[in-house]
């Protein structure tokens, strides 16, 4: 009985982790900053590709994942500085510009890397409850998702940066008048969003075959059809 219960929880945790990790960045970029970032999936893709690349170079997985998230975050800051910054007052145009960026990045990756590269295996480790075996890595993902949620809450609700960031999103002119460096705040917030997207890609990179799944993610996250996404995870779920 407890095995069945745990199995239900395990599946819940699996879907929960995927949704939170893939949508957390969007919550900042779209939810707080109001920027429709069609290139969100590309940041996820960036995280995944950097992770795979680094692991193949011999970097330990956890370190590679951290570096991948940081890379995505830095690229996010650059994108904000070069593109999104000029379009805050033209939301439709920011949608078009990021869509253009998304087309460029996805198709360039297809040209450069090809439509498939060999993945890296899911970290070993499983445990058994009752008659079922579960993968430990899925629980690690769940823990990461919870940690991201708590971290975000603390960052934006309990720190000085969070207060200034929220003030900037609410009324940039007033925050600026009070001495906040709004430009920097915007850039950092966008960077955090992109970094979280990269983290999602990095964490899920070992569990998936890297195909162009990331580009469609934005719609899976933002529309009810998301249930198709976790199905594409190739790691064994609930093996008998």
């Amino acid at each position: 009985m407890s095995a069945e219960l745990f199995s239900v929880f395990y599946q819940f945790a699996d879907v929960f982790a995927f949704l939170i990790l893939s949508a957390a960045g969007l919550a900042i970029v779209f939810g707080m900053m109001g920027v429709i970032n069609m290139a969100h999936g590309e940041f996820i893709m960036c995280g995944a590709y950097v992770t795979v690349g680094l692991v193949k170079l011999g970097v330990p997985l956890a370190l590679a994942q951290g570096l991948a998230a940081v890379t995505a975050g830095l690229i996010g800051v650059a994108v904000e500085y070069l593109i999104v910054r000029r379009l805050y007052k033209r939301p439709l145009d920011s949608l078009l510009a990021t869509w253009g960026l998304s087309l460029i990045v996805t198709q360039s990756m297809l040209l450069i890397v090809g439509s498939s590269i060999t993945g890296i295996g899911t970290p070993e480790g499983s445990f058994a409850i009752g008659g079922y075996t579960f993968s430990t890595y899925r629980l690690v993902l769940f823990a990461c998702a919870v940690a991201v949620l708590i971290g975000l809450y603390i960052t934006f609700m309990k720190t000085r940066f969070g207060v200034i960031a929220r003030a900037t999103m609410q009324n940039a002119a007033m925050a600026k008048a009070l001495g906040a460096r709004t430009g920097r705040i915007y850039a950092i917030s966008f960077g955090i969003g992109a970094g979280l997207a990269g983290l999602c890609g990095a964490l899920y990179a070992p569990t998936m075959t890297l195909i162009r799944w990331a580009q469609r993610l934005w719609w899976k996250v933002s529309s009810p059809s998301w249930s198709a996404a976790p199905m594409s995870c190739s790691a064994p779920r609930r093996p008998p």
Partner: peptide, 13 residues
């Protein structure tokens, strides 16, 4: 498609 994306981006910017 890369060219399309570039055109879109350049147009907006």
């Amino acid at each position: 498609l890369v060219l399309m994306g570039t055109l879109l981006l350049a147009t907006v910017m």
